[in-house]
Simulated assay, not measured.
Amino acid sequence: MSHYYGLVPAAGTGSRMGVDLPKQYLQIAGRPMIYYAVRAMASSPRIAQVFVVLAADDAWWDEYDWAEFAGKLQVLRCGGATRADSVTNGLAAMGVDAQDWVLVHDAARPCLTGAMIASLIDAVGETEIGGLLAIPVADTLKRARGLHVSATEPREGLWQAQTPQMFRHAMLQQALSLDNGFIPTDEASAMEALGHAPLLVAADSSNFKVTYPNDLTMARLMLAQERAET
């Protein structure tokens, strides 16, 4: 029987946030943003262990107390220059079986819930390819030339990818090691480059990625509401 593992690549700097601190360490209610991504994954009874991939010279992680995740959380200081590099290095260091499932989740998606994780695992089941959380595109899409609209793109059939993205360990390793000059921006695109068609599992917009300062404000509000309701 396959096991499920979480992998959180967190070696980036988050330059679009306009701050010196890597964005995964920006504060939400007194905790670094990555805490909430780790908490969601570690709290799932179906995930055996959560691996966090840090840059080798990360100076912030050890400033926080991670004791509540003891026994389920392992830090891997093998982050790379790109997300794909960090995931590749993390996969190599995990030491799990080839057919085990790996759920790769962004450190900057702090509003992930246990229900979303369960929905992904249930939908993918024991399929061979795997899948990802995503939402259908609702807004009208404009292609730009400079700062002017050059075309309106049809949105039918378009989905916005989220995380976790869940694939078997060996297959994801193979996809990320493909040497064809293509640099994948997520795990699903690496799988697509191998000719696979990952399953789209409908999530919702609350599982957004914190990219710009206003996103952080929204995440703080949502997590504050969660605390008020519990």
Score class of each variant (00 low, 15 high):
123 A>G: 07
177 S>A: 13
171 M>F: 12
170 A>R: 11
194 L>F: 03
128 E>R: 13
129 I>L: 08
193 A>E: 04
174 Q>H: 11
143 R>Y: 11
154 P>G: 10
127 T>M: 07
171 M>I: 14
188 A>V: 09
117 I>P: 00
134 A>P: 06
185 T>G: 13
154 P>A: 14
161 A>H: 08
116 M>E: 08
149 V>C: 11
165 Q>I: 04
206 S>F: 14
121 I>Y: 01
154 P>I: 13
121 I>R: 01
131 G>F: 03
161 A>I: 14
142 K>P: 01
205 S>A: 15
132 L>G: 06
157 G>T: 11
143 R>G: 05
139 D>S: 02
183 I>N: 08
138 A>I: 15
166 M>I: 02
207 N>W: 15
142 K>T: 13
132 L>I: 09
203 A>V: 04
157 G>V: 13
209 K>W: 15
168 R>D: 05
199 L>A: 05
200 L>C: 00
170 A>V: 06
162 Q>F: 10
161 A>W: 05
113 T>S: 06
127 T>G: 11
165 Q>C: 01
144 A>W: 05
182 F>Q: 07
175 A>V: 14
119 S>E: 14
219 A>L: 09
127 T>E: 12
165 Q>W: 02
156 E>G: 12
204 D>Q: 01
166 M>W: 02
125 G>D: 10
126 E>Q: 01
115 A>G: 00
138 A>G: 13
152 T>Q: 13
216 L>H: 12
163 T>N: 04
182 F>G: 01
188 A>H: 06
174 Q>V: 10
182 F>W: 10
215 D>A: 10
173 Q>S: 09
199 L>R: 09
217 T>N: 04
161 A>Y: 11
196 H>A: 07
